Amino acid sequence: MTGHPIYFLWATPRSTSTAFEWMMRQRGDLICFHEPFGMAWYQGPEARAPRPAPSDRRRPEAMFEKIWHDIQQAAERRPVFVKDMPHHTDHLWNDAFLNRITHSFLIRDPAKVLASLHHSYLKAGMDDGFEAHEISFGPQEALFDLLRKRGEVPPVLDSDDLLEDPDTMVRTYCDAIGVPFIREALSWEPGARDDVLWYDGNDEIWHASLRDSDGLKPIPRKQVDSGDLPPNLAGYFETFMGHYSALHAHRLRPETVNG
């Protein structure tokens, strides 16, 4: 393998993944990419989304092959960290692609994902209609199973564990992927997050919590009752829970790495 490592965090929407990515950006030793294949999936000329971006928001440069080339070129200079969703890349899962990546996963209770999606769609003035594939629970499990069949068991970080004890879980994650833990990266100044805005003005709604935050700090674990979800979202819960539970069984705990 030539070049530096390429670390991928495979997430679902509304899984605290952008806050985690922001923390990785604070380290200063990684070139970071925010959902680069999502741009191609929604806005590129090869768009695969069920509802691609309208023509005035298309990006002709957002080609899957070019994006992958740019990531690999960046890794010639420094280690790379990429946060993306597995459904954006499931057509790329060949040996050359998978072998070049150090894989990890971030999962979240689907009741919390669905509740957060509903809240964000309401704030954005959008209807919360989507296809299950777009929320990536199924593709997460599919990619995890594929990697296991290839002899790799990538680390899985659960959002609840992360938020309850960021210091311990980020350290455990760093140990698992083989990078040094930098505690200072867990804090930052509140403000605009232009590096993670790539679709349209509604991104400010999706990332408002990150914009107003000043770091990853312990948050008491809370439960969301799936019975409180609106009917159009509640129907996804059981299916998503099956995918989530399959990965949750492999989640990182401090003793997983530190013995």
Rank of each mutant, 00 (worst) to 15 (best):
P190T: 05
W188I: 14
L216P: 08
G215C: 09
L186S: 15
H250R: 07
T239Q: 05
E238M: 03
R251K: 02
M241W: 09
K217C: 01
L229D: 13
K222N: 07
N202W: 07
D194W: 15
S187D: 08
W206E: 08
R253C: 12
H250Q: 03
H248F: 14
P231H: 06
D212E: 07
L197Q: 12
D200L: 04
E189H: 08
M241D: 07
R251A: 00
Y236E: 06
Y199A: 02
N232Y: 11
H243L: 08
P230F: 07
T256N: 09
E189Q: 14
W206R: 03
N232F: 10
H248K: 12
P190D: 09
G201T: 07
L233R: 11
S209E: 08
L197Y: 15
L252T: 02
L216C: 05
T239M: 04
E255V: 13
R253A: 14
I219W: 15
A185T: 01
N202E: 11
W206V: 11
G235Y: 03
D200K: 05
D214T: 13
D214G: 13
H248R: 11
M241G: 02
E189C: 06
S187K: 01
R251D: 03
L252I: 12
E184N: 13
W198H: 13
M241R: 11
A246H: 10
Y199C: 02
D194R: 14
S187P: 00
H250G: 00
E184I: 05
A192N: 06
H248P: 00
H207S: 00
P220F: 00
A185H: 04
L252Q: 01
R221W: 10
T239H: 07
K217Q: 11
H250N: 05
P190S: 13
R253F: 14
H207W: 02
K217W: 09
Y244P: 00
D212H: 03
I219H: 15
G235A: 09
E238P: 02
A234P: 00
R183E: 15
G227N: 14
R221A: 06
R193Y: 01
R253H: 13
N202Q: 09
W188T: 12
L229I: 11
P220E: 11
K222Y: 09
A208K: 06
W188P: 13
D195C: 06
Q223L: 14
S245W: 02
N202A: 11
K217Y: 11
G191P: 12
G227K: 06
R221F: 07
W206T: 10
R183G: 07
G191H: 04
G227C: 10
E189T: 12
F237Q: 03
R211S: 04
L186M: 15
L186Y: 13
L252V: 08
K217D: 05
